[in-house]
Computed example of a mutant assay.
Amino acid sequence: MQFGIFSVGDVTPDPTTGRTPSEHERIKAMVAIAQKAEEVGLDVFATGEHHNPPFVPSSPTTMLGYIAARTEKLVLSTSTTLITTNDPVKIAEDFAMLQHLADGRVDLMMGRGNTGPVYPWFGKDIRQGINLAIENYALLHRLWREDVVTWEGKFRTPLQSFTSTPRPLDGVPPFVWHGSIRSPEIAEQAAYYGDGFFHNNIFWPADHTKRMVELYRERYAHYGHGTAEQAIVGLGGQVFMRRNSQDAVKEFRPYFDNAPVYGNGPSLEDFTEQTPLTVGSPQQVIEKTLAFREYAGDYQRQLFLMDHAGLPLKTVLEQLDLLGEEVVPVLREEFAKGRPAGVPDAPTHASLVQSLGTASQEVTVV
């Protein structure tokens, strides 16, 4: 099972000091956080994609390429690649290039984003969001698998005998996760292609997450990719830790109360009760995260949001030390217990290359 962190890249004032980092500071902090993630033994770093203040990660492949040169093992991913407003041709090119530079340590998560105005900024109609996601991904899927593509659709100009370059490393496209909080159409899309489904459940109760994941698993099996338990599932989470739970609550409360996303809403106590947010000791984080399996089944990837709401870099790095040293080793061990033999690991470039080779040998034998 893979464990990692994802960042939305918000530039938020620290409510305890009133200081707002510059965009430069925030970008450099995200790089430092990614490097720290590898140092403490995490598997994945994922960045969001936003094109408006107060967020900075408008060019994920640029950032991930920079991080790739400074890491050795970390899987570099996105917590959203806007399949609706980005040109699928450019996505194909950018991520194939990143895949080569990172020696295959790349996957990505398709999403529609959470900022409505981004659609007209890129010449698109938000009312066509689902249709854009479906059509654009259908084209992207072909661009990575066919050397020459002739295509015509509704939302972009046709392609005539087009070849996307560079071609995917070793002939294997980056693995794709489809991220959604509330859209069953996206769970269906992930199942249709046999891709991964990432439910970013950080704002939602367990029963909603359960319904979305079960839908994806059922449809994955329906399309003949394997059994429902073999479907590739990822989940989000939010944590803030101190060794003493009371210290964690006291320290995190002003950040929670003033956060752009959930500030001035439910209380910290209500939010931790109703969603995956855990504010407390490392043991409390372990216990709550292990409970995700009760409603999502055995899954492949767990990403935590840790660098948001104005938390200073020093604090985030301390959180990563606790995550890597005290939490993730226990989670790895406990999630492995009782895991059915038929449940696959999260796909990596190496495993996908191996699968391609096995499939080619089977075809040759036949």
Rank of each mutant, 00 (worst) to 15 (best):
P312C: 04
L64P: 08
I83E: 14
A92L: 10
T47W: 00
L352H: 11
H51W: 00
E333C: 00
R253D: 10
F203E: 10
K90Q: 12
T71C: 02
E72G: 13
M110R: 13
H199G: 02
W151Q: 09
L268P: 10
E152N: 15
E185G: 00
I33M: 04
G226M: 03
T157N: 11
Q319Y: 02
W121D: 14
V343T: 13
V118Q: 12
S161A: 15
A102D: 06
G18T: 09
F304Q: 12
P205C: 13
S59N: 12
R242S: 10
K314F: 05
T275N: 03
T289P: 00
K73P: 00
T16Y: 01
E214L: 11
P347Q: 02
M109T: 14
R293T: 11
Q354P: 04
Q238S: 12
D170K: 12
H50P: 14
L235K: 02
F55D: 10
M30T: 12
R105K: 06
V56Y: 10
A46F: 03
V31K: 07
D147V: 03
P282I: 11
E229S: 12
P260K: 09
P168W: 11
V40P: 07
P282F: 10
N136W: 07
R332H: 02
D247F: 06
P276D: 05
F155T: 06
V328G: 01
H178M: 04
P54A: 04
R19A: 15
R332W: 00
R70K: 15
V233T: 08
E23G: 13
T12R: 10
N258L: 07
G111S: 12
P168I: 07
L303M: 15
L323D: 05
W121T: 14
E72T: 14
F335H: 01
D107A: 12
A46E: 03
Q230D: 08
E49T: 11
D345F: 01
L169K: 14
V213L: 02
R211E: 13
A309I: 06
M30S: 15
G263E: 07
T61P: 03
S164W: 08
G297F: 09
L313A: 00
M212V: 05
Y262D: 08
D345C: 02
T20L: 15
L235A: 03
A37E: 06
A190R: 01
F252H: 09
F252P: 03
A191D: 02
Q284M: 13
E287V: 05
E72Q: 15
E251M: 05
L235S: 02
Q238G: 08
P57D: 05
M110D: 01
M63K: 01
R156I: 14
N244E: 13
W121S: 15
Y216M: 01
T150I: 10
E318S: 11
T272Q: 08
S77I: 10
V316H: 03
P312T: 03
F3M: 04
V106P: 11
Q284P: 00
I67T: 04
G48Y: 05
L215D: 02
G179C: 14
D307T: 07
E333S: 08
T17Y: 11
D170Q: 11
P53F: 09
T81D: 04
D195K: 01
S180G: 07
T62K: 07
